[in-house]
């Protein structure tokens, strides 16, 4: 095996391991918001490493550009989707208050609601 193949293999293994860990995290974490952490961080890096491995092992610049696009769009969309899921969960009461040390968003939302209803 050449050096490039070794590096590509290492990228694949690490990337897949991180994706697996993300899946385990989603299974094990106690509530929605903690699960979103697993869905954004190890998952994104896992994808980046897998794409790097793929680019190295194929070694064609035509494909490499597409893989870079995949990574760019993952970086742009993962936080947005995590935010939307978290926000929706928050507003529909899917967040476990007992796991939160401090919850300043609920404080502010309740204050805003109190301001809206007169009296």
């Amino acid at each position: 095996m050449s050096v490039v193949e070794w590096v590509a293999s290492a990228c694949f293994l690490l990337g897949c391991a991180l994706t697996l860990v993300a899946a385990i995290g989603i299974l094990r974490f106690p509530d929605l918001l903690a699960r979103m952490h697993a869905g954004t961080k190890p998952q994104v890096l896992g994808l980046v490493l897998s794409m790097t491995g793929l680019g190295l092992s194929i070694g064609s610049s035509q494909v490499a550009w597409k893989l870079i696009l995949v990574i760019v769009f993952q970086f742009m969309t993962a936080p947005v989707s995590a935010h939307m899921v978290g926000r929706a969960g928050y507003r529909t009461g899917k967040v476990r208050e007992d796991l939160l040390e401090v919850d300043e968003l609920t404080e502010d939302l309740e204050r805003a609601k109190a301001d809206e209803t007169p009296g």
Binding site: L33, M36, H37, T40, K41, V44, F75, A78, P79, A82, H83, G86, R87, Y90, L105
Partner: peptide, 11 residues
């Protein structure tokens, strides 16, 4: 913030 350690934007 959503991609770095320990934080996700909820709102």
């Amino acid at each position: 913030c959503s991609l770095v350690p320990g934080s996700i934007i909820v709102e």
